[in-house]
C-alpha cells in the first residue's frame, strides 16, 4: 500500500504544483499575495464544465477554460492590483482587494451552479486502469503526471531561456532597474497573471476530473495549501514550489493512510513550522529563486 499511497500523493501534489506555481510567480514578480487565485482555479473547473456540457469537445473546453482563466487573472491585476501598485505600499490593500475579487467570483459561481456540486459527465475522460508491480494507476493519473511535468518544464524553460522569461525575472528581482533597462513591467505583469491564471484554471479542470467534484468553494482548501507550499518552498521560488507541492501531496496521502484521521492539517502545519525553524526562508529561500524574490 505504501507505494500506492506515494503514487496517489505524487499525482495530487503535481496538481498542487500547477496551482501553486502561478501563485508563487505572482508573488515573485509583484510581492503581492493574490487571494483570488483560488477562485480562478475554481473558475477554470466551472468554465470547462459548462463548455463540456454545452457540447464542446473536452480538449477544446480545457483550452478555452485556460484562456478564460488567464484573462480572469489579468482582470484581477487590472481591477485589484494596478491602481494600488501606483500608490505604493500595496501589500495589505492588495490582499484585501484580491479577497474582494475572490468573493465576487465565488458568489457568481454559487449563483451559476445553484450551490450544487458539479462533475464532468461520465465518459468525458476514459476510465482505464493499469496495474504494474502491484501499483494501480489510471490513464487519467498518467496523463496528469505527464501534463504537469511538461508544463513545469515549459514554464522553467520560459523563465530561464526566453527573453520574455528573463524580463519576468528581471522585474521580480528589481522592478525599477528593469524599467531603466527597457523592460515594460506592465506587460510583464499581464503575462505573469495570464500564465498564473491559465495554470490555475488547468489545475481546476484536472482536480475536477480527477476527483469527480467541483463546487464553488473548491478553491479554498487549495488556496490554503498554496500558502503552505509557497512558504515551505521559499517565497517566489519556482523549484521550491514544485518540490514543496509534491512533498505536501505525499505527506497528505501518508497521514491519511497511516495516522488517525483528522490530523492531516495539523501535521501539514507542524511540518510548515519545522521547515521554518530550520530554514526560515523556506527550502529554496531567496538566493536560488528562479522567479527572483530578493528585495533590494
Amino acid at each position: 500500500m505504501l507505494s500506492q499511497q506515494i503514487l496517489n500523493g505524487l499525482v495530487t501534489g503535481s496538481v498542487y504544483a500547477l496551482f501553486s506555481l502561478g501563485f508563487t510567480l505572482i508573488f515573485g514578480v509583484q510581492k503581492l499575495l493574490n487571494f483570488a487565485h483560488g477562485a480562478t482555479f475554481m473558475a477554470g473547473a466551472f468554465i470547462a464544465y459548462y463548455c463540456t456540457i454545452s457540447g464542446l469537445p473536452f480538449l477544446l473546453a480545457i483550452g478555452f477554460s485556460m484562456v478564460a482563466t488567464g484573462v480572469i487573472a489579468i482582470l484581477v491585476d487590472l481591477i485589484a492590483f494596478r491602481s494600488l501598485r501606483k500608490r505604493g505600499n500595496a501589500e495589505f490593500p492588495a490582499l484585501v482587494s484580491s479577497i474582494g475579487v475572490d468573493l465576487i467570483l465565488v458568489s457568481i459561481a454559487q449563483q451559476v451552479s445553484k450551490t450544487q456540486v458539479l462533475n464532468f459527465p461520465f465518459g468525458t475522460f476514459p476510465v482505464k486502469f493499469y496495474t504494474f508491480m502491484g501499483l494501480r494507476i489510471s490513464l487519467l493519473q498518467l496523463v496528469i503526471l505527464a501534463t504537469v511535468a511538461v508544463l513545469v518544464a515549459l514554464l522553467i524553460f520560459y523563465l530561464k531561456k526566453t527573453t520574455f522569461g528573463r524580463q519576468v525575472r528581471a522585474v521580480a528581482t528589481n522592478e525599477r532597474a528593469a524599467a531603466l533597462l527597457g523592460v515594460n513591467a506592465q506587460s510583464v505583469y499581464l503575462q505573469t497573471f495570464f500564465i498564473a491564471g491559465a495554470l490555475a484554471g488547468l489545475a481546476g479542470v484536472l482536480i475536477g476530473l480527477l476527483f469527480n467534484s467541483m463546487q464553488f468553494l473548491m478553491g479554498e482548501p487549495y488556496m490554503l495549501r498554496a500558502f503552505v507550499v509557497v512558504v515551505i518552498g521559499g517565497l517566489g521560488s519556482v523549484p521550491g514550489a514544485i518540490v514543496a507541492s509534491l512533498m505536501l501531496g505525499v505527506m497528505q496521502s501518508l497521514t491519511v493512510a497511516y495516522l488517525p484521521s483528522g490530523l492531516t492539517d495539523a501535521i501539514i502545519f507542524a511540518l510548515l513550522f519545522v521547515v521554518l525553524l530550520i530554514r526560515p526562508n523556506g527550502l529554496f529561500g531567496d538566493a536560488n529563486a528562479v522567479a527572483g524574490g530578493t528585495r533590494q
Binding site: R166, N174, L180, G292, T294
Partner: peptide, 15 residues
C-alpha cells in the same frame, strides 16, 4: 541596481 539573482550573462541579455 544589477539583477542580483541572475547570472552575469543573463544581466547582459536583459540589457
Amino acid at each position: 541596481q544589477i539583477l542580483a539573482d541572475m547570472s552575469v550573462y543573463e544581466n547582459l541579455l536583459v540589457g
